[in-house]
């Protein structure tokens, strides 16, 4: 009985030591809620759910079927591609006034990014990238501060 209690205490102690919460990125973390509408890279965007864009540009796509579209809103820019029938969100680039779902915005520190999104990231030159399947969130870090944020979908 004493041995069982001791083992339990040791395990409890060890678990207590490693109780630091593990943060991992999922594609839901790349979602953005604007005007109570949630948008995520890769989702269908045939009828734009956020109507009040500032500018809209439509261009013949070199890569995809149909037209590429760019919606510029006050706080972000949204890019779509087409599969020939429907439009899908390819990328969302945040402006300085908008935060990610985990509270990171342009000007946040790299430390804040790692605290919010965890240590499981890759780097590409100045970018810190969190990926889940075909979705990623990319933070451009310049001098330890976030200078650009984009939520991206990489089509097959």
């Amino acid at each position: 009985m004493k041995k069982t209690i001791s083992l339990f205490l040791i395990l409890s102690f060890l678990m207590g030591c490693s109780a630091k919460p593990q943060v991992s990125f999922t594609k839901e973390d790349a979602s953005l809620t604007v005007e109570s509408k949630t948008i995520t890279p890769g989702m269908k965007y045939t009828t734009p759910s956020i109507p009040d864009w500032v500018t809209f540009t439509e261009l013949t796509s070199c890569a995809y079927k149909g037209n590429d579209k760019v919606y510029e809103y006050d706080d972000f820019t949204l890019y779509t591609y087409s599969d020939g029938t429907d439009d899908y969100i390819l990328s969302i680039e945040l402006n300085s006034s908008l935060s990610t779902s985990k509270g990171i915005k342009i000007g946040s520190t790299k430390e804040a990014v790692l605290k919010a999104y965890g240590e499981e990231y890759t780097t590409k030159i100045l970018n810190v990238i969190y990926t889940d399947g075909q979705v990623n969130i990319t933070f451009l870090i310049v001098e330890d501060k976030v200078s650009a944020i984009s939520l991206n979908y990489r089509p097959e």
Binding site: T57, C62, Y64, V70, Y79
Partner: peptide, 9 residues
């Protein structure tokens, strides 16, 4: 491999 095609304004 590292670039993604995206229309740009």
């Amino acid at each position: 491999n590292e670039m993604v095609y995206q229309t740009d304004l």
